[in-house]
Structure formats: C-alpha cells, structure tokens
C-alpha cells in the first residue's frame, strides 16, 4: 500500500465528519436560503429570502452592532494582551504564579464568564449594590447600564476578559522566541524604549498577533451565546437575529434565517480578508 493511500485512509474518518457535517450543513443551508425546502412545499428556488434580508432595516443595525462588538473586542484584547505579554516576559519574583493566573480563564467556558459579568456588572449585580450601599448612587437601578445595553459593553467586557489571555499566550510565546537582542540593537542605534517597541518589536510580533486577532474577530463576529445572554433585545447581534428567525413558529421564516446565516458567513470571510490586508499593509510600512 502506498504512503499516500495509507495517509488518505487514516484521515478518512476525520475528513468524512468534516465533509458531512460542515459542508453538508452548509449545502443544506444554502439550498434553504434560496427558498428550496421541499418539506414545506418550497420547490422553486428564488432570491426572495435574500431580498427580505437586505430590505430589512434591522439587519443593517444588527450588522453594525455585530461589527462594533467584534472589532472593539479584538482591538482592546490585542492592546491589553500585548501589554500583559510585555510585562510577563520580564523576570520578577512570582512570575510563574502571575503567568498561571493570567492563563487561568482560558479554561473557563464563555457561558461561565457571561454569568460572572451578569453578577458583577448588571443593574442588579454586585457593583450596583455596592455603589448604592456606599451611597455613590441613590439605588442600584441608577448604576450605568453595562449589560443589555445598546453599546454592548457587557458583551465586549466578557470577550475581552476571555480573549486577552488567548492572544497574550500567543504573543508572549512569539516574544520569547524572538528574544531581546533586536531591541538591544535598536537601543544602541539610538531608539528610545517606545521607538524600539514601535519600530522593532511590534513588526516582529505582528504576524503572530494578526493570526490570533483574526481568530478572535471571526469568533466574536459569529458567536451567538454571549450576545444572546448579555445583549439588548434591539438591535440584536446578527447571529441572535438569525437564530430568532430560525426558531420562528412559522417554518416559512427559515429561508430568511438561512439567508442571514449565509450572509454572516460571507461577511465574516470578507471582513477577515480586509482586516488581514489592511494589517499587512500597516505592518509593511
């Protein structure tokens, strides 16, 4: 048996699951988004579901909100992760413990984090009660709306809490493999600490940072559960809107839900492509 055949056979079980579940699901979704759903008598494919999506004002508001959540979460996480990695690569007493604590919430599920945000930051949460108790505000309901709010602050807080260690671990490993000699060279050539970071370290860690942030962006753009738990009812994030349509009692709304899901997938792909292109151009300067 040739090596190529052996490898193909060994990979077949894993590949078949990916092909059936991912591409199969995508194909079914695509067919339904074109109004082809024989179960309920829709046998003539058309573009009506897409037309309905693109003429709905709520869709555009949801898109803007979802983009804001993904972009803001990714940028803030990146900045904090790079800062944390810069501190953690230094030698200090207790570094191992700090490093462990920094990475600890990588193992905590998103849902647990979301419940934590609710307990801490909602208007009935711990901070609101403490603020009222210390007479900083008249009653807990006067606490600023950080959860279920139109700016998605609670959602962003949750994503930042979860994604900072994810990006941080990747960037830290990157920094450690690069070492400090490049920065030493630049310092002796006259660069200040900031110039050395801006002109030398940042371009060197950029590829690793970019890969990690693309993953975070794609995840936060397409994730459902956190916006569903911590987001406002209107406008809702795109995945929440699509899920609502999908679970509508009227089965005829499903093609619209599928059209929305396909649009989310395409938008994710396009936005990631643009983000990578823009970032590479910035790095190349």
């Amino acid at each position: 048996m040739s090596d190529r055949l052996k490898i193909t056979l060994l990979l077949f079980p894993a590949l078949s699951i990916i092909i059936v579940l991912f591409f199969g699901g995508l194909l079914v979704g695509l067919m339904r988004s074109f109004n082809y759903m024989p179960v309920i008598g829709l046998t003539e494919p058309d573009l009506s579901a897409y037309i309905a999506v693109f003429t709905d004002k709520e869709f555009y508001l949801s898109f803007l909100l979802t983009f804001h959540i993904a972009f803001t979460s990714t940028v803030i996480s990146c900045i904090l992760a790079v800062g944390a990695a810069l501190l953690l690569r230094r030698r200090f007493i207790g570094r191992a413990i700090v490093n462990f604590l920094f990475q600890l919430n990588l193992t905590v599920p998103h849902l647990v984090g979301a419940i934590g945000i609710l307990y801490l930051f909602s208007q009935s949460g711990s901070f609101a009660r403490l603020a009222a108790q210390w007479e900083m505000i008249a009653s807990p309901s006067d606490f600023p709306a950080l959860v279920f709010d139109p700016y998605a602050i609670g959602i962003i807080l949750q994503y930042v809490w979860k994604e900072v260690p994810f990006i941080g671990v990747i960037v830290l490993a990157n920094m450690q493999s690069i070492g400090e000699d490049y920065e030493s060279v630049s310092r002796t050539l006259g660069a200040s600490r900031w110039q050395s970071f801006r002109h030398v370290l940042l371009p060197l860690i950029f590829p690793g940072m970019l890969s990690a942030s693309v993953m975070v962006f794609a995840f936060t753009f397409g994730a459902y559960e956190i916006p569903a738990l911590l987001g406002a009812n209107f406008p809702a994030a795109l995945p929440v809107l699509a899920y609502r349509k999908y679970t509508d009692v009227d089965l005829a709304a499903r093609p619209e839900a599928m059209a929305m899901a396909i649009v989310i997938a395409l938008l994710s792909a396009v936005l990631i492509y643009l983000y990578v292109r823009f970032s590479r151009r910035k790095a190349g300067r």
């Binding site: 000699d181 050539l189 006259g190 660069a191 110039q195």
Partner: peptide, 27 residues
C-alpha cells in the same frame, strides 16, 4: 555606543537601506 551582534540582527521586515538608515530615522 553602537553594538553589532554576532548574528547581525538585521531587521527582517525592512529593506537594506531602511536597516542602514534606522539610527538616523530614530534621531
């Protein structure tokens, strides 16, 4: 004081000219 390291440590994302001009740019 300028130090030239054993493995040169030229900045890989810059051209040769940008590498040489780096110290002047920082000034």
């Amino acid at each position: 004081v300028v130090m030239v390291f054993q493995n040169y440590l030229l900045f890989p994302y810059m051209t040769v000219a940008a590498n040489i001009g780096f110290g002047l740019k920082m000034r």
